[in-house]
């Protein structure tokens, strides 16, 4: 029901706002729900809010099990690449 896309934080503007990059699209998102996310971390973005910090290690493991392959680069809600 809720579109969310993974994005990488590239700059922290203040305690509640960061700039996230979605493959060349940089958007300022509220980080009130992900207070620990810093530059280089991957978060899920929903309606202008980072709703979760993604666990990169788990993401890679999940995809490795499913794939034995590199994750596809352009898929919604895919893992961090």
């Amino acid at each position: 029901m809720c579109l969310a896309v993974p994005a990488k934080i590239v700059a922290v503007k203040d305690e509640a706002c960061a700039t996230a990059d979605l493959h060349g699209n940089q958007i300022d998102v509220s980080t009130v729900m992900t207070p620990d996310a810093g530059v280089g971390d991957w978060v899920l973005i929903h309606a202008g809010f980072a709703i979760q910090q993604l666990d990169q290690q788990t993401a890679m493991e999940t995809w490795a099990v499913l794939n034995d392959l590199e994750p596809p680069p352009t898929q919604q809600a895919g893992p961090p690449t």
């Binding site: 029901m1 809720c2 509220s30 729900m33 309606a47 202008g48 809010f49 709703i51």
Partner: peptide, 11 residues
């Protein structure tokens, strides 16, 4: 919306 969309409203 459901629980995903509620926190942005609360915020």
């Amino acid at each position: 919306g459901f629980e995903t969309t509620t926190p942005p409203t609360a915020a």
